[in-house]
Design a protein around this nucleic acid. Structure first.
Lengths: 176, 176
DNA sequence: TATTGTTATACTCTATAACTATA
DNA sequence: TATAGTTATAGAGTATAACAATA
């Protein structure tokens, strides 16, 4: 094993350009699982960084805020904080913080749950729905322009195989 | 289009368990690119959250610090800050901050570049190399246990297709 | 003038833990 | 006792911008 030969350099020699990212740290002797992981991570980071940057500069918002609003579109009657916390995989305290921001801007509202006075239900306001629609459309066009270079068969196969991988991985998380 | 039917629920009905994550926000009417993106993102987040958590609890460190050390293993004679910044895709100021932390702990050292006195070269110390080796071994075993449930043919195909996607996406980034 | 790296600042996200109110 | 949500705290990462030293 040579610790200092980059995997990227080996694979791309004379053909494809080297991409500066996480994957360049692969050294050629990783096991196959690690190579797959680093490659998937670098794909995600390329896109995620771009999306975060555009959400910030074009809409003055963030991915977690977009995510929270997105979750709420599926619960027109409102969603409990604890449910949001579970779906977003962050702690209750963090959901409170993000909700506070969105509430101050009039994008979501807290409703009292009559059946359990400890709980509140969060839902999008009319303004929040309008705002989300714009965000979602912009997001979709960004993704299309970033991924549009991928062949449809590649995309479909990837989608299916990532589904397999996701479920295999999920089942192996200690928390499950 | 129905805005409130979750894609996850539709796809998994009666077969696979619903996984609480970003992908649950898909509503069934996204275009194929967006569906692929959300699925890839949720795969990454499942693994990344687990890795971040274990780096913190088991090694009191973080992914960017691990990443920086990892980049340095490929430059035994040292790497410039600006090169690190480019590879890690973060700003110079942030590389300075992470380097400061690692230097305080004796894991990396700054060397003066005789040819350009503005620059410094960063490299792993002996202690840093030992620490990195432990981290890398733990990381590899975590990934193997998380991805080990994936069939080898699935893994190989994913690896190749993600390579395609990565290069197609990279070419479409505005910054390029 | 441009580049390398540092410093300062402000902000978001995150985890942890203590706390209140309710069940 | 347990649960839902809030608050407080501390820390990390990030972007932006001003700055010094050097090229």
């Amino acid at each position: 094993m040579t610790d200092f030969t980059t995997y990227t350099a080996v694979q791309h020699q004379g053909a494809l350009p080297a991409i500066p990212d996480l994957e360049t740290r692969a050294t050629g002797d990783e096991d196959q699982d690690t190579r797959l992981w680093l490659r998937m991570l670098s794909c995600c980071n390329l896109i995620e960084n771009e999306v975060r940057s555009r959400l910030r500069t074009e809409f003055q918002t963030t991915l977690p805020r977009f995510d929270l609003m997105s979750q709420l579109t599926q619960a027109p009657k409102g969603m409990k904080m604890s449910e949001l916390s579970r779906l977003m995989m962050v702690t209750n305290g963090n959901v409170t913080g993000i909700t506070d921001q969105l509430e101050r801007e009039g994008l979501v509202e807290r409703l009292k749950d009559a059946r359990d006075r400890r709980s509140s239900l969060i839902r999008l306001t009319a303004k929040g729905k309008r705002t989300y629609r714009k965000l979602q459309q912009a997001h979709e066009s960004w993704i299309q322009s970033l991924l549009g270079g991928t062949a449809p068969t590649t995309r479909e196969t990837l989608f299916d195989l990532l589904g397999e991988l996701k479920h295999a991985t999920y089942a192996r998380l200690p928390a499950c």
